[in-house]
Amino acid sequence: MSIIPKNEQNQKQVLTLNELSKRKVVEHNSLITSIAKMDKTPLKMFELAVSCINTEEPPKDNTVYLSKRDLFAFFNVSDNDKHSRFKQAVEKMQKQAFFQIKEEQGKGFKFKSIVPIPYAEWTDYNDEVKIEFHREIMPYLINLKKNFTQHALSDIAELNSKYSIILYRWLSMQYNQYEHYSVKGGRRAEQVEAYRNPSISIKELRIMTDTVNSYKQFTRFNNDVLKTPLDEINAHTSFNVTYNKIKKGRSIDSIVFHITKKPVARNDFYKLEEQDPIYLQDKANKEQAEELLAGKALKSKYTKLLLDNMLLSPYEMTDTSLMAGLQAHVYPLYDELKELRGLNGVKDHLSYVSSKQEAYSKRNVAKYLKKAIEQYLPTVKRQDL
C-alpha cells in the first residue's frame, strides 16, 4: 500500500526561514538526556538541522540542505564577519562537539560518543549549505515510535545559553509526557502530575549540563545553570517555569520544576476584526461548526485508535480545526472501511500506517491520514469484488 509518493532521488530541498519557523524538532529521549559536549552555537545548529529532516521521506545519505541567508537570520547574525564566524562554528562543531549517550543494556549501561554532524559543505559563491548527519545519530532522529520528544524550533531560536537549551529540551520531554498521559491515561494521577512537576537530583543535573567539574559553589551554579536560563525560557518560549530547591541535610539535593504552558497569543488585528459584524458572524459560524465536529471527534473510537498508534498526539487534540477536519474528512472513510472489514480492519490499517511513518512529523495530520485511507479503500473494494 503506497501512502507517500516518492520524490526524485537527487532532489534537494533548501528550506526558507519562514518554513523553519513552523518546524518541530523531534528527538529520542536518550538524546535529550545525553551530555551535549558543545557550546550553544553548535547545539543550536544541530537543532536547526534536525528540524529540517522530513521523516516522511528520510533524507538521502543522511543529508539536508540549508540556506546561508536563513542560517544567518536564524542566528541573528548581520555583521560583516558573519561568514568567517559561520565557518568557525562549523569547524568547532565537527572537531569538538559530540553527544555522550548513556543507555541501559542488559545488566548495565552502554555508552556512546557521537559527533552528530561530521560533514558540511558550502561555497563562497552559493547560498546553499550541505549538512550531513553521522549514521549513528540517525536512529535518534527518525522512525521514532516511542520515548521521543518534540519541541518548537522557534523556541530554541531565541535561547542564547547552552544551559537554556539543555533545560528547555528536558522540560519539553517532561511536559510532552504530561500532555500524553493526561489524555490517553495509563498512569496514576500523581504520576501524571509528576511530569508537570518533574524532579531531578543535583548530581543528575550537573551530569546533563556537563558541569560536574565547574560551578563548584552552588550560588553560582544556581545563577548560571538554573535561574538565568529559566528567565530566558520564561521570556522566549511557550513555557512558564518555576523551581524549588530540595535540601537533604544542609545541602541542596535536588530541584523540582513546575511547568505551565502560556496561553496562545491573540491575533494582532483582533481589535479591528471585533468591529466588523460580518467578520464576526462568519467567524462565529465557522467556529461553532468546528467545535461541534471537534467535539464528536474527541468522543470517536477512531481518535483513540489514532492515539494508540501514535498517529495523533494529545497536543494535536487541542487543535479544534484539526479535530474537525478528522471528523469531517477522515472518519467517514474509516466508517466505509469498517463496513467492509470491520473495526479490526481499521485497526490493521492504522497499525500499518504507523509502522511506515513517524507520527509527530506530520505537517498536516488530517490530510496525511485522508490520503492514506483514500489510497487503501479502492484496494479493499477491488478485493471484495
Rank of each mutant, 00 (worst) to 15 (best):
I3C: 00
I4W: 11
I4K: 01
K6A: 01
N7Q: 11
N7M: 03
Q11I: 13
Q13A: 14
K24I: 02
V26T: 11
H28R: 10
L31D: 01
A36H: 12
T41W: 07
K44E: 03
F46E: 07
L48H: 03
S51N: 01
I53V: 08
P58V: 10
K60D: 15
V64K: 00
L66D: 11
D79R: 14
N80E: 13
N80Y: 10
K82F: 11
R85V: 00
A89R: 01
G106C: 05
I114M: 04
Y119L: 01
A120H: 06
E121M: 13
T123S: 13
D124H: 06
D124R: 08
I131R: 00
E132C: 02
H134Q: 04
R135D: 11
P139L: 08
Y140L: 04
Y140G: 10
A152L: 15
D155N: 11
E158W: 04
S161I: 09
I166A: 00
K184P: 04
R188M: 09
Y195R: 08
I200A: 07
L205S: 12
R206N: 10
T209I: 03
T209Y: 06
T211H: 14
V212I: 12
N213T: 05
N222C: 07
L226S: 02
L226R: 08
T228L: 00
H236K: 13
H236S: 13
T237N: 07
N240P: 02
K247W: 06
D253Y: 01
I259W: 02
I259H: 10
K261R: 09
A265H: 15
N267A: 06
N267T: 09
E273R: 12
Q275S: 04
Q281F: 03
N285R: 02
Q288G: 15
L292R: 12
G295K: 07
L298M: 06
Y302R: 05
T303S: 09
M310C: 15
L312K: 04
L312F: 02
S313Y: 05
Y315P: 05
M323T: 09
G325H: 08
E336A: 11
K338N: 13
K338E: 14
G342N: 09
G342L: 10
L343Y: 06
E358H: 02
S361A: 06
N364L: 01
A366R: 01
K370W: 08
Y376Q: 05
P378H: 13
V380W: 08
K381S: 14
